[in-house]
């Protein structure tokens, strides 16, 4: 399964990068979300896949049962999901504001301050 997920990660990255290079802010933000999905899955997969055994210590025991999912990548991803959402919300608000000001979805129209 990790081989399959590796391919999925590759596809998500490829799709994300391709969309971010389009001349549309909508696609750009969409690509951003795909990239964060790709990154999350990447961390998850390289951390090792264990079916149906969450890293929760059974009542009374002090350690995990031997084949259990690795808790550390999960903690990282949990943080990443939340931060990714914050970034997304901010980009969307920025986009919305930008669209109202410049009336355009094209990043090439947003070069005013560069000139």
């Amino acid at each position: 399964m990790s081989t399959l997920l590796a391919i999925v990660v590759g596809c998500l990255y490829a799709a994300g990068v391709y969309m971010m290079l389009r001349r549309s802010l909508f696609k750009l933000i969409l690509g951003l979300v795909f990239l964060s999905h790709g990154a999350n899955l990447l961390i998850f997969t390289v951390g090792g896949l264990t079916r149906g055994r969450p890293p929760v210590v059974p009542p009374g025991a002090t350690g995990l049962a031997v084949p259990s999912a690795d808790p550390l990548p999960q903690a990282l991803i949990l943080t990443a999901i939340v931060i990714g959402f914050a970034v997304l919300a901010f980009s969307l608000a920025l986009f919305h504001r930008g669209y109202q000001t410049f009336g355009s979805d094209d990043p090439d129209d947003l070069k005013v301050s560069d000139q």
């Binding site: 997920l5 590759g10 490829a14 990068v17 790709g38």
Partner: peptide, 19 residues
């Protein structure tokens, strides 16, 4: 092409970076 290269690299990264 750039996107595909990125994707292939990431796939390779996952395949190499196994536990």
């Amino acid at each position: 092409v750039l996107a595909l290269v990125t994707g292939v690299l990431m796939t390779a990264l996952v395949l190499v970076g196994t536990p």
